[in-house]
């Protein structure tokens, strides 16, 4: 009986917590479907929000997409395409570079390896503000301003956090497996591609998901480097709904667009959930 009681309590707590966590999504959904005056009021008073709008404006969502940028629909489609491209390239580059370096740090013996690893760990604590302006100057000298290159290229140089994860995970693969592959004819690159990567699926999932979410929602980077309107990403486009005094005009469109922007992140998480948890458990966290 006691078991049953405690299990019920657990369930209740979990459900309550889940409701608390999901509550903002519901709020945003409701506001996104309200009429303009109701939406404005909803952001001002507690009482003004209802469980579901009495008069749901489903058209808000299409209106929001249409209203992005100067040319109807094109603004949104451009922003969407830019976001997809930048995110895809960055995620791919990150997975490749981090798994390569992680493999080298975990399994290949070379002098200075320990030092390299320690220095890399040190950079994890680097606040990004320290390098922001110098990086911009560098990219400007290269003539890369107003292209996606400043956003994508740094991903090819690895990311300390994910390199760390890959390294921890790969270090746990039995040495014999790597030796067998080497004897079977694989050079290190072959071992990485044919043996390590297939076994590292959980860490790949984590890297991909985290990177995706960060890049998809990244605002400061595109703000600084992308100037032309047609090059903007969704995060920037969202911002164009704001006005200079931080007021809340068309807040229902803002919510609708925010939700649209969040959909890929949510989907991605749902799909990769299992791999994700597995990966977090096995490799990421020891030492």
């Amino acid at each position: 009986m006691k078991r049953r009681g405690s299990r019920l309590l657990t369930l209740a707590l979990l459900a309550a917590g889940a409701a608390l966590m999901l509550f903002p999504l519901w709020w945003m959904l409701v506001v996104s479907l309200e009429t303009p005056s109701n939406a404005g009021a909803a952001t001002v008073e507690v009482g003004a929000i209802s469980a579901f709008p009495a008069d749901p404006q489903w058209s808000n969502w299409t209106e929001a997409m249409r209203a992005v940028g100067t040319v109807e629909w094109q603004g949104f489609l451009d922003a969407l395409a830019n976001s997809i491209l930048v995110t895809f390239l960055t995620v791919t580059a990150t997975v490749f570079s981090c798994s390569l370096v992680g493999y080298a740090l975990a399994r290949v013996r070379f002098r200075g390896r320990g030092l390299l690893f320690a220095v890399m760990l040190g950079t994890m604590m680097l606040p990004p503000q320290v390098t922001m302006i110098p990086m911009f100057l560098v990219f400007r000298e290269l003539g890369w301003v107003d292209t996606i290159l400043p956003l994508v290229v740094p991903a090819f140089f690895g990311n300390a956090f994910f390199i760390f994860m890959f390294r921890q995970f790969m270090a746990q693969v039995p040495e014999a497996l790597v030796e067998a592959a080497r004897l079977d004819g694989c050079a290190h690159l072959g071992v990485w591609w044919r043996v390590m990567l297939p076994m590292c699926r959980p860490v790949i999932a984590i890297t991909a998901v985290f990177t995706f979410i960060f890049v998809w929602n990244d605002f400061l980077g595109p703000l600084i480097y992308l100037h032309s309107e047609e090059k903007a990403t969704l995060a920037i486009a969202l911002n164009s709904f704001r006005n200079q005094y931080g007021g809340l005009e068309d807040v229902q469109y803002l919510m609708a667009l925010s939700l649209i922007t969040m959909i890929p992140c949510i989907l991605l998480f749902l799909v990769a959930q299992r791999q994700f948890i597995e990966g977090l458990g096995s490799g990421a966290v020891k030492g």
Binding site: A176, L177, E179, A181, L183, D184, G185, C186, G190, V195
Partner: peptide, 30 residues
């Protein structure tokens, strides 16, 4: 890999993500 030798390991060292057939074909594929 260039010494023309083959090794059988204590822990077998089979590639877990490949089938038996693929495991055995692996060195030849390389």
């Amino acid at each position: 890999k260039d010494r023309d030798i083959a090794m059988v390991f204590q822990n077998y060292a089979l590639y877990p993500h490949l089938s038996v057939r693929q495991n055995m074909a692996f060195p030849l594929e390389r």
